[in-house]
Each structure stands twice: as C-alpha cells, then as structure tokens.
Amino acid sequence: MWHLLEKISEQVTKYSTFLGQLWYILVFVFRLIVVVTIGGAVYGDEQSAFKCSTDVVGCQNICYNQFAKVSHMRFWAFQLLAVATPSVFFHFYSMYMSGEIQKLKNSEDHLRQLEEADQDHLLPKNAQDEKDFKKMSKRRKSIGHVKVRKIYSGNELKEIPYTNKIHYAYYLSIIIRLIMEGVFIYIGYTLFKLMDPKCQHTPTDPMCPGSNNPIYFLWIRVPAMYKCEGNPGTDVYTACTMHVRDNGFVPCFVSRPYEKTVFLCYMSILSGICFVISALELVI
C-alpha cells in the first residue's frame, strides 16, 4: 500500500501547487497514519470496554449503537477514501496523458528520421508506421497544446509535459475533494455531536452542540459517561425498559474518553485545515 501511495503522490505532486503538496502531506501522512497505526491501540476495545449499569441482555449493545452509530476509525477510513479518490483518478489520467504525449513525440521523431533518410520516398516503411502516423492527427487534437514545466525532483531538475486538459483535470479533482471534505465534516458533526453532561445544564455554552457554533464542528468532546435515553417504542426503551422507566436513562461509561477526544479533535481540525487549503488552492 505504501508503495502505491508513493507512486500516486509522486505523480500528482508533479502538477500540484505548494498548497496542493501541503494537502498531500496532511492527508497521507498526518491523517492516514492515525487510521492505519496509532488509532487501533485506542479504539481496539471501544465496544467491549463500553459498560452500562445494567446486565439486561441486549441493553448494552443497543446503547452502544446509539452512542457510536459509526466507529470513529471506520468513519475516518471512509473519509480518507472519499477525499483521496479524486487524486487517485487524476494520477491515472495524468499517466494516460503523459503516455499519449510520449507516443506522439515518438511518432514525430520517427517520421522526422524517415524524412531525413529518404527525401524522395516519404511513405511509411511498414504497416505499424502507417498505423502510428494515421493516429498522429487524432492524438494532436486529443492532447492539445503541450507545454513543458520544469520541477525539482530530489536534487534533479526535470521537465514534465503539461496541457490544458491536465490543468483542468487537476482543478476538477480539487473541487471534488473540497466537496467530499465538506460533506464528511458535516456528517461527522451529525454523528459525533455527543451530548456532554455539562451541556445539559448550560445548553447555551458556545462549545455545546445546541449552540450551533461552527467551531463545534471541529471541536467535539467525547463524554466519560453517556446517558442512554429512549422514548416508548424505541429500541432503547424496549431493551432497557426497567432502567429507563425508573431513572429516565441508562448510565453508560466510555473507555478512554480523553484520548478519544484528542483523536477526534485532531482529525476534525485537520479536516478543517485540509478544507481551507483546498479552497485557497482554487482561488489563489
């Protein structure tokens, strides 16, 4: 997987701006590494360590499903897949266009050699040459005007082909990943706006979900105790009838709430930064 990411990053960064390269670093290093390495140690026992103050069969599972509709780790994995997919498609498109440009260049060089070798007979020497030369006009129209960009790759100065179609495809990938980032920030807020116990008494607190403060999209707290509540007719009320009827809720306790808050804020803030970077890359 790391080899594939390296190839994609190498290809896409040839055509990206400084902001684009910064985006790749944040996504494929600072965000992806949490999902594939560090996060597993914190979230490995998230369901087994979720304990409620009742042994009623099914109650704890229902409360956990209400508390964590989607696991943080799985959500981040889907999020990274969605925001990285446009870059992957651009990688394959730019490789295809580079191949077409190289084929056109080879055909033009071959034709030039034939012209220089025999000024009186300019016809292709074999069927393959004839086939390649017939495709030259079509390739020229498909590729368009080819420019050359010079970039540093390591310690070497390299020339890469650049066309308007590659330019438009790159900015289309930015627009799509910007949309995906915004959609997942909103979905994440909707899924993870867990009611902090403090907010039940002060709902106007700017850091509470009831305040509709935009900052809360990026700064969500995971409570140490979750009040599993349910109205008559809901799954929670059915599974935890005695507890809910007597106390109004089932108290459930979350494992490592502080660590999960740190991870949740870390990933949410990076999502917000990546969203801003993508927006700036479109307008600058």
Rank of each mutant, 00 (worst) to 15 (best):
W2A: 15
L5S: 03
E6R: 08
E10T: 13
V12F: 08
S16E: 15
F18H: 08
F18P: 01
G20H: 08
Q21D: 09
L22V: 15
W23Y: 13
L26Y: 06
F28S: 08
V29Y: 08
V29R: 01
V42N: 08
V42S: 10
F50N: 03
C52L: 06
S53E: 15
V57L: 10
C63L: 11
F67Q: 09
A68D: 02
W76T: 04
W76S: 07
A82M: 14
V83R: 02
T85Y: 12
V88C: 00
H91G: 01
K105H: 14
N106F: 11
S107H: 09
S107L: 05
E108D: 06
L111C: 03
L114V: 07
E115V: 11
E116S: 03
Q119C: 03
D120T: 07
P124L: 08
P124T: 09
N126I: 11
K134F: 14
S137R: 15
K138I: 14
R140D: 04
R140M: 13
K141W: 12
R149G: 02
G154H: 10
E156Q: 13
K158Q: 15
E159G: 01
I160H: 04
P161R: 03
Y162S: 03
H167A: 05
H167R: 14
Y171K: 14
I174G: 02
R177Q: 15
L178H: 05
I185C: 10
T190K: 12
D196I: 10
P197Y: 09
H201A: 09
T204E: 13
G210E: 06
P214V: 05
L218F: 15
W219P: 00
R221A: 09
P223K: 07
G230K: 04
P232I: 01
G233C: 04
V244L: 09
G248D: 12
K260A: 03
C265N: 13
S268V: 00
S271W: 10
I273Y: 06
C274R: 06
S278W: 04
S278G: 14
L282V: 04
